[in-house]
Design a binder for these strands. Structure first.
Length: 579
RNA sequence: CGGGACGUGGCCUAGUUUGGUUAGGGCACUUGACUGGGGGUCAAGAGGUCGCCGGUUCGAAUCCGGCCGUCCCGACCA
């Protein structure tokens, strides 16, 4: 492959685009890899297309190595498939919907579970046909409320999605492990720094689930990590270790007059000053009322959640904990309908009598003593003991996570970082096969309900993530396997240098090296060097003022190191780097 | 959907507060000359419905009204 800058469809920009915030966005636009067409929608220019193709190729090779079989569904889909699983309505605003000329409803596929399940049902019917794993590399469409960060999070994006179909849970587990290993190999090859995090399965349903997160300050997902044991989890999936049970004996419950103490801090100050309790916010039990709505219905159940008073409810964690239910704020009008709940002074002591479900943070174990509401305006209760004065209906992971919280595996302090989700694997189970009535006929002549796994990699996002992780102040720094070319040959100065650069380029091309050569006449060396650094090929070969002495410069883009080499050896040296 | 900002050649922008000749600059582009190792210099050019519609006015990029669009911060996702 030989690309000549003199004829390459490329224009680099000196200024950052005004709408770009994150480095990958700025650099991919400045280096002429992508151009914005509409919010969250980008075109790929020749160099960008090569990068995208390289990422795609790596993913495809690893999927094929695993035994996956590639298919391709349409992006434009009729409504019926998504009607059956309820997602035509459930997917909500994020679904691109359109009508054909007859007025029939269509959508642009945001994901393809339904199509895969249906295809397998149509083609396979015997237990002998399983297991099978199918995948596709497809453009997906999601009308995000707010696309941002260039191709990191667009409304149109390329995704590899695969689905495993197994006869039993053990098979599903095997398919899941295979994908896990394949993803590890894939991201290693792509040169992406990543963490495997326990995850919640979110809107897709299903059970066991892990996310591959690329650490980045600009990431949308918070995750925790433990230095000592390697535990890592998405913030939504972090579990809180329960402390040991408290002592059996406690002083009796005591109701206190606490006027004007609507917040935790005013309460703590008041009881310490007037009653000498010596408590902190962490000794109080904050009770938050929410409504949990079942999707697709108007019914909402009232739920009270108890968390230590020094912690806020993390709404994202709450949502994950109650999924597929949807939590809603309990408003003033709701309090009027439930006179037993005294706003600001709710205590768990009465919830059983009110018939309201009470879930607590895992730290609230039997034998722990709390300061909490007394269910009367202006009054709180102290020495309220879990297991004696109230009995929760269970625990819930809804309290915020903080750096320094105990690791659920080893107890060491956790750190919190941000990351970009680049892959997600999970064991879907039978949610879609139930809807599709996807069965195989077993050896005994009875149907076996197929169990599915679902696995995604953000392909175009991976390009942005690589750019995000591999750049410096000068420009992009592509890993060799992903770079548009192996070597960027710069011919500075006059015709001699450019002529030599071109002939070296042809020799290298003949050796199977992918070459980008800057043969633009009349462009100053400074411009060519800047462009070479911005574009980010891993190796830069300069044919310049050393030509008269028969030497060239061989530069490593990532380290910035360079050496002078005889031009006669240049082809061998570069070819050796590539093999 | 809530909050904030903005809309001027391909890109980045000045001008708008206080209406007044031909809307100015930088980058990029074309031509010529010089230069030739860090986005070089000089000269000459091409390129604009100032987001759209309406209003006020002798006169609107500028003031008023409406609409559209975009970006950023929050609630949602490969």
């Amino acid at each position: 492959m030989l690309l000549r800058m003199s004829s390459l469809f490329l224009r680099t920009l000196r200024d950052d685009p005004v709408d770009a915030e994150v480095p990958s966005h700025k650099l991919l636009v400045r280096a002429g890899y992508v151009r914005r067409v509409a919010p969250g929608i980008y075109s790929w220019l020749p160099l960008g297309k090569k990068v995208l193709d390289n990422v795609t190729r790596v993913i495809r090779e690893e999927m094929d190595r695993m035994g996956g079989q590639e298919v391709l569904f349409p992006a434009l889909l009729p409504r019926d498939y998504y009607e059956a699983t309820g997602r035509w309505t459930e997917y909500g605003e994020a679904l691109f919907r359109l009508k054909d000329r007859k007025g029939a409803d269509y959508l642009l596929g945001p994901t393809h579970e339904e199509m895969f399940a249906d295809m397998v049902r149509g083609e396979l019917s015997s237990y002998k046909d399983f297991p099978v794993t199918l995948y596709q590399i497809q453009t997906k469409y999601r009308d995000e409320a707010r696309p941002r960060a260039g191709i990191l999070r667009g409304r149109e994006f390329v995704m590899k999605d695969s689905y495993s179909f197994d006869l039993d849970d053990e098979g599903l587990k095997r398919s899941y492990e295979q994908h896990r290993e394949t993803y590890i190999r894939t991201f290693e090859r792509l040169g992406i720094d990543y963490r495997i995090c326990f995850a919640t399965s979110g809107a897709m349903g299903g059970s066991a689930s892990e996310e591959f997160l690329a650490p980045a300050e600009t990431g949308a997902d918070a995750f925790v990590a433990c230095r000592s044991c390697g535990y890592a989890a998405n913030a939504e999936a972090v579990t809180t270790p329960a402390p040991p049970a408290g002592p059996a004996e406690h002083p009796p419950l005591r109701v206190l007059d606490t006027p004007d103490t609507p917040t935790i801090q005013t309460l703590v100050d008041f009881v310490n000053e007037h009653y000498g309790l010596g408590v902190t916010a962490a000794d109080t039990l904050k009770n938050v009322v929410v409504k949990i709505r079942t999707p697709g219905s108007d019914k909402a159940e009232v739920l009270v959640i108890g968390v230590p008073g020094d912690r806020e409810i993390d709404f994202k964690r709450l949502e994950a904990a109650v999924a597929p239910g949807e939590p809603e704020i309990f408003e003033a009008a709701d309090f009027e309908r439930h006179p037993g709940l005294v706003r600001g002074y709710i205590g768990p002591q009465v919830l059983k009598d009110l018939g309201i479900t009470y879930l607590v943070d895992p730290r609230v174990v039997d034998g722990t003593s709390w300061v909490t509401g007394a269910n009367e305006p202006g009054r709180h209760a102290a020495n309220v003991v879990a297991g004696r004065d109230f009995t929760p209906d269970g625990t819930i992971e809804a309290a915020e996570i903080r750096a320094g919280d105990a690791c659920p595996q080893c107890g060491s302090p956790l750190s919190i970082d941000r990351g970009i989700e680049i892959g997600h694997i999970f064991q879907l189970g039978r949610k879609y096969s139930d809807v599709a009535e996807l069965d195989a006929l077993g050896p005994d002549g009875k149907p076996i309900r197929i169990t599915m796994g679902s696995y995604g990699i953000g392909v175009s996002r991976a390009v942005a993530v690589i750019a995000e992780q591999r750049h410096d102040e000068l420009g992009l720094v592509w890993p060799r396997e992903i770079a548009p070319a192996d070597v960027h040959i710069v011919g500075t100065g006059k015709d001699d240098q450019i002529g030599v650069a071109l002939s070296l380029a042809e020799e290298l091309t003949a050796r199977g090296v992918r070459v980008l050569v800057d043969d633009r006449p009349g462009v100053s060396p400074g411009v060519k060097f800047k462009d070479a650094e911005l574009l980010g090929m891993p190796t830069i070969l300069v044919i310049g003022r050393g030509l008269a002495q028969g030497v060239a410069e061989l530069r490593d883009r990532a380290s910035g190191e360079w050496e002078e080499i005889p031009i006669a050896e240049a082809v061998d040296r570069v070819a050796a780097l590539v093999s």
